[in-house]
Design a protein around this nucleic acid. Structure first.
Lengths: 241, 241
DNA sequence: AACTCTTGTAAACACCGTTCACTGAAACCG
DNA sequence: CGGTTTCAGTGAACGGTGTTTACAAGAGTT
């Protein structure tokens, strides 16, 4: 069955344990507790042994970020699958709610991945869910036509690049879209939505609203409604595909 | 002139030096470099001596946050004062631009103060500039009348609390506002603006836009325009007061 | 002058990332 | 099978960290 040698299997097992231990430490005791020695202690080995698996503490943290992204993507995909309405609007809502719920349940992970002044995440690990959904959203053609002229010319170059990223993300899943459907105006609105979604979630996770919010959830839902309506979704539209 | 004793003066000097050293370390070498021993080294003393001034490393970091907030507020007030148009819309724009500029120039400070999973900031240190401006903005009556009915009932309690915070912030500066001008609809829109402003700035500082943005500034300005127009400002309105 | 209060020190403890020489067993090869 | 190579893991060490403790020495007070 397995072509891997005994040694390779053991190595893979240990590496998995390292990741699990690192993750548990981050979740339970914060970023500063993710220590080589603490991880090693958890596995019953010594700290230098970890250097057989990772070049440095920093490299291990980077790996941790990737794992977190992968896990979050899995959660969001599950949220997406749980929506049986078949309506793109509902799907977007489900994923956005899932993102907020995940961030609130995993503040340490959120801070590490989404709010640390380190190297930018690659588009793939960034959360293909978002890209996938954004692509489908735009392709569904339910979005009101936004004229490209609304978008300042200086942004065109960047938006065209993002357009390509989106097309790639969607085509990976076997869907192809015509160029003209993915026009710049729509793409710009998707970026604006990301700004609002991220802004609300981060403010809530970090407690940086200018006053104590006792009921953040309806506030979020309200923002979501307005966001979807800004993009051009009506409340009870039915979706394509 | 000074009523302080010699000893008190010396103590105040040392404390100031500690803060300066801590700040310099944060800016130049990141959060993890703000070390008791490094600070002490800078002052030519030993690490335990710092315990005469702060209870712990954590307490010192908290003080650092306060200092950063104070400095940022000073910068934003300067940006506000530099705007001689007398138009509230321009003033809002100036402060928002100043906030983005400050955040990009001080990413470490921004991350520490605005994107760390710690205790929420007090309303005072949060940036009285924002509150002051938001209050004036709402009071200027240029904002289109937003019906309170748009706002979900669950949010009323929170918004009323924020209303009080705003009134207090404005009245500190000698301005008084009638209750009915500061209606909940307006307040809600101000909160939404904060979400978008913070969202854009944080995404830019942390490089978490879903694609590489080569021209973030016009994108920000565009967002600002749309934000102001959403609040109800027209491009060339003139302001009250 | 005697006393207290304050500010600093040195030493120590337990922890951290990282390096290095070394061990022992698994894997490979003739 | 025997010899050799590969490699995960060890223990000791280096310089760094936060924090506590006992102690010194000067400033301020009476």
């Amino acid at each position: 069955m397995t072509e891997a040698t005994r040694r390779e299997r053991l190595r893979a097992d240990t590496e998995r344990e390292i990741r699990q231990a690192a993750r548990a430490l981050l979740v339970e005791r914060g970023r500063d507790a993710v220590t080589l020695r603490a991880i090693a202690r958890e596995l019953g080995i010594t700290a230098p042994a970890l250097y057989r698996y990772y070049d440095s503490h920093d490299a291990l943290l980077r790996q941790l970020c990737d794992d977190i992204c992968a896990d979050m993507a899995a959660v969001l995909y599950a949220d997406l699958a749980a929506d049986t309405s078949g309506q793109v609007g509902c799907q977007v809502r489900a994923v956005c709610r899932g993102f907020r719920r995940w961030a609130l349940a995993h503040p340490q992970e959120f801070a590490l991945v989404f709010a640390s002044p380190r190297d930018p995440l690659g588009a793939d690990q960034f959360g293909s869910v978002f890209l996938h959904l954004a692509g489908r959203l735009i392709a569904s053609n339910l979005v009101v036509k936004h004229a490209d002229e609304e978008v300042p010319e200086v942004l065109h170059e960047d938006l065209v690049r993002f357009q390509q990223v989106l097309m790639d993300a969607v085509s990976v899943h076997g869907v192809t879209v015509e160029d003209d459907v993915l026009n710049l105006g729509k793409i710009y609105h998707v970026v604006q939505s990301w700004v609002r979604l991220y802004g609300h979630v981060a403010l809530e996770v970090f407690g940086r609203f200018p006053f104590a919010v006792s009921n953040p959830e309806p506030m979020f839902d309200n923002m979501l409604d307005q966001m979807l309506s800004d993009i051009g979704f009506q409340e009870d539209d039915s979706a394509a595909r």
